[in-house]
């Protein structure tokens, strides 16, 4: 059973071949786990959330109609399972004010970021992302990291198109603000050198 389309594995699973489902797990576990980790912020919890998401996907596999991609359907389950896990914990809501950012502001932040090693830079951005509200964080990840279309994001999050666009716009501005605050000491020394 090597590299068949998802529909084949789904059909086999529905006919009783549980092993066929493991191929789908192997294919999508990184995708589901990455989303879960970015949302719940803890690897241990993300493992649990990911397992729960796959178990739900298995239970409701017969309800997958095939009118969207299996990955989109699975993302929706993983997203909702992550949100449920977050709601169970008492998390304080992250509020970040959105200031007007100027073009110069962006370029100086970029200059500082580009001066850091790629791995360290990715860690900085990751930490900054964690400070966003979970729904805005998820939308940024879906749009920029997973490169889902707007239509797919709407399907995964069950939000309206207008709501997704507004949250995406806000999330980008907030992320920039958070990154700027994070690299502020470097920014000050950068302007100092100028």
């Amino acid at each position: 059973m090597a590299n068949k389309p998802d529909e084949d594995y789904i059909e086999l699973t529905l006919k009783g071949d549980v092993n066929a489902f493991s191929f789908l797990v192997e294919k999508y576990k990184d995708m589901v786990f990455t989303l879960a980790v970015k949302m719940v912020k803890s690897r241990e919890e993300a493992e649990e959330v990911s397992q729960d998401a796959f178990i739900k996907a298995y239970r409701y596999l017969s309800k997958f109609k095939g009118d969207s991609k299996f990955s989109t359907w699975l993302y929706k389950i993983a997203y909702n399972t992550s949100l449920d896990a977050i709601k169970k914990k008492s998390n304080s809501y992250n509020t970040v004010t959105i200031d007007e950012v100027t073009v110069n502001y962006i370029s100086s932040v970029e200059t500082v970021l580009d001066g850091i090693e790629r791995e360290e830079r990715a860690a900085v951005i990751n930490d900054c992302l964690q400070q966003l509200p979970e729904d805005e964080r998820a939308i940024l990840l879906f749009f920029y990291f997973k490169e889902l279309s707007l239509k797919e994001i709407i399907e995964v999050t069950s939000m309206s198109e207008a709501n997704v666009k507004v949250k995406l716009h806000r999330a980008r501005k907030k992320l920039l603000r958070i990154v700027k605050n994070t690299v502020e000491p470097e920014l000050i020394s950068h302007y100092g050198r100028k």
């Binding site: 549980v18 990184d30 951005i125 990291f145």
Partner: peptide, 30 residues
């Protein structure tokens, strides 16, 4: 500009991988 900034840096975030026995543990539950 903000769109380009976000796209450039969010793409660099690494994909996370679960534990080695993730699939086997999951399949036992299933």
């Amino acid at each position: 500009e903000i769109h380009a900034f976000t796209k450039k840096y969010v793409k660099e975030i690494p994909t996370e991988t679960p534990s080695l026995d993730f699939t086997s543990n999951l399949m036992k539950k299933i």
